[in-house]
């Protein structure tokens, strides 16, 4: 008898689950139906799997909403492989990306080095059906950093100065940096740092707190950090200049499917890119990562009202 009752309960649960999933798929179908009728303004905004990307995506989303566009959000999707396929299968229409990395993704033989050349090459490399809009001045790229003491002791302010350092250099960064063209091999090839004077310490947190701590306490003396990391200023680290453009420019750029790129949308996003600077990205990251732990939505809202865009 107990079994019969349990079976009945299971049946009810299953029916409910089926009904729910049916509702879900019905919504999806009507959603895509609206779009194919044309003229409808729903844009599906996505972001990569880290906070800065979500903040920028929120800025895009709220700026579009202020123009009367309906926005669906799919944040923190993951790495480039994953969100590009989401873009290709139509799960999202728009995502912020970075010019150099995106160019290398579409064309790994590209040899552009300046910010403009990279952007021009990128507009060519993006496949049909997709486009990049104006790039922002804001840039988030890998950078080599040393402590203030190290910089003063060895007179190092640029990567070109590293060749003359008599102390053994230990570079800390994500494991793949070792194999990247702008990694230790790039320091040797481009800046003439003797290969046997560079050690490498893999720290798998993408320039996060462990890498920062390793540089601060001397486990490494050169660390790969992102230029928009608030930790650089907080710890008084010195970011080394890169006169030979060893590291590719990484300007923030919206990647959008052409179907979604109506004139209004393009105008709105270009206005955002025209305002966004690296310093502001650092500040916004600091609000997100620091004491305040502000949400990307709040940070985006404040930035938009601060610039007068919304």
């Amino acid at each position: 008898m107990g079994t019969a009752r349990r079976m009945a309960g299971l049946g009810i649960a299953l029916t409910a689950a089926l009904a729910l999933s049916a509702c879900g798929s019905a919504d999806t179908i009507s959603g895509s139906g609206d779009e194919s009728e044309g003229g409808s303004s729903t844009i599906k905004v996505g972001s990569a799997g880290f906070a800065e990307s979500e903040i920028i995506a929120e800025i895009y989303a709220q700026a579009l909403e202020a123009q009367g566009v309906t926005v669906e959000r799919t944040m923190q999707i993951g790495q480039r492989d994953v969100y590009i396929s989401a873009l290709e299968d139509g799960s999202i229409d728009l995502i912020p990306d970075y010019s150099g990395n995106l160019l290398q993704y579409y064309d790994d033989g590209a040899d552009a080095t300046s910010s403009e050349d990279v952007y021009d090459a990128l507009t060519e490399a993006v496949p049909d059906g997709f486009e990049v809009l104006d790039q922002a001045e804001a840039e988030d790229k890998d950078s080599y950093n040393v402590t203030k003491e190290f910089s003063e002791e060895h007179g190092v302010t640029s990567l070109a100065d590293l060749a003359d350092v008599d102390e053994k250099l230990v570079v800390g960064g994500n494991p793949e940096l070792k194999e990247r063209p702008y990694g230790p091999t790039g320091l040797t090839d481009v800046y003439g740092v003797p290969a046997d004077n560079i050690g490498f310490t893999p720290i798998n947190d993408s320039g996060g707190p462990l890498t920062v701590e390793a540089l601060a306490n001397g486990d490494v003396n050169v660390a790969d950090l992102f230029t928009t990391s608030p930790a650089i200023a907080e710890n008084g680290f010195v970011t080394l200049d890169d006169p030979e453009n060893l590291i590719l420019p990484q300007n923030v750029v919206p990647l959008i499917s052409s179907d979604a790129a109506t004139d209004d949308v393009i105008e709105t996003l270009n206005a955002v890119s025209a305002e966004l600077t690296t310093e502001e990205l650092i500040d916004m990251n600091a609000r997100n990562q620091g004491e305040e732990k502000a949400s990307p939505a709040t940070i985006a809202k404040d930035w938009l009202s601060g610039t007068g865009l919304v």
């Binding site: 492989d81 994500n174 494991p175 793949e176 194999e179 893999p202 720290i203 798998n204 947190d205």
Partner: peptide
Amino acid sequence: AAYLPLGGLGRFVFDNLSLR
């Protein structure tokens, strides 16, 4: 362990993940 600069079999996994 390979999240930190140590060895072990995780090195193969983490060192090559981002390099695809």
